[in-house]
């Protein structure tokens, strides 16, 4: 008899666990079905390739899609190197119990729990006003980078720490430099954690509304540079469903696009990281 199969007297617990799982799947299915039913009919090449008209009731979402991707690009370009550096410092060069390490970790954990609207106001005050970037894609992307940094650093640090000690010892015994063992052994070992961090952080960033209203802004024109204001998809959806009478249809369609985008981002990130894990940084 399979040792892992639940015994008979665990029937009730099994039932509860199954129904909880089924409930979660059902909620997800309901949400997807709702968006698909209401949104799928509006999706067409025109919708993806034209600019919004009549406050978004008619027309498409092309400038908004472009702005969203630019904001994400800025966010990841700024956040990844800083996250990598901090995580390596914390995991490799700082003893786990040291006061410095504990302080940084505590600060990051507090930051990770800060509501996004606070990051929005900070981003507005610091990037938009103090640094003079104004309402721009750059301000928005950098604000999102601040927002996802704690998450990225903490998952990456945990991933680096999870590398077994024998790998480090083996690398040292083979006379590998620290840089080489980091690149070929330790970082690839932390790849699944990096993937998890990217998916969580990227997901949080791409779905962000509050932080972006105050930083990248509301303008739905095609951005000419990173210093132009550009409306993100989530801001567009919020505006259509809350402030634009008759905007519900296009709000659903935009939500569907956002979900598909999220799905594509997830699959690509997973692909890149798993390849990186196999080959190491020296491809």
């Amino acid at each position: 008899m399979n040792r892992l199969a639940p015994a008979k007297n665990e029937g009730f617990a099994g039932f509860v666990l199954w129904s909880v799982a089924a409930f979660i799947v059902a909620v997800f299915a309901w949400l997807m079905a709702d968006i698909l039913i209401h949104g799928a009919a509006q999706i067409s090449w025109d919708f993806l390739s034209t600019a919004p008209e009549k406050a978004g009731r008619r027309g498409g979402i092309l400038p908004i899609l472009v702005s969203t991707l630019l904001i994400m690009g800025v966010c990841l370009l700024a956040a990844l190197p800083i996250a990598l550096g901090t995580a390596i410092l914390l995991a490799e060069f700082t003893p786990e119990k040291s006061a410095f390490g504990r302080m940084v970790r505590r600060a990051l954990d507090v930051l990770a729990g800060v509501p996004s609207i606070v990051f929005g106001l900070f981003g507005n005050a610091f990037f938009s006003v103090y640094l003079g970037l104004g309402f721009s894609i750059l301000s928005g992307g950098l604000t999102l980078a601040c927002m996802i940094l704690p998450l990225l650093i903490r998952t990456l640090e945990a991933g680096l720490r999870a590398n077994p000690a024998r790998d480090r010892l083996a690398a040292a015994a083979l006379g590998l430099s620290y840089g080489a063992s980091l690149r070929h052994i330790l970082l690839p070992g932390a790849a699944p954690a990096l993937l998890a961090g990217l998916l969580l952080g990227g997901g949080r960033a791409i779905a962000e509304t509050a932080a972006l209203v105050y930083t990248s802004g509301y303008v739905d024109r095609m951005p000419g540079s990173l210093l132009d204001s550009g409306r993100a998809l989530s801001v567009h959806i919020f505006d259509l469903s809350m402030n634009v009478p008759g905007g519900d249809q296009n709000a659903y369609a935009s939500a569907l696009v956002l979900i598909v985008l999220l799905f594509i981002v997830n699959v690509t990130t997973a692909g890149i990281v798993s390849r990186w894990r196999k080959t190491g940084l020296a491809i």
Partner: peptide, 15 residues
């Protein structure tokens, strides 16, 4: 020209 404020007025003024 930069205009900021009410989310009710923003869609109208954008147009």
């Amino acid at each position: 020209l930069v205009l900021t404020g009410s989310s009710t007025v923003a869609p109208l003024v954008s147009e």
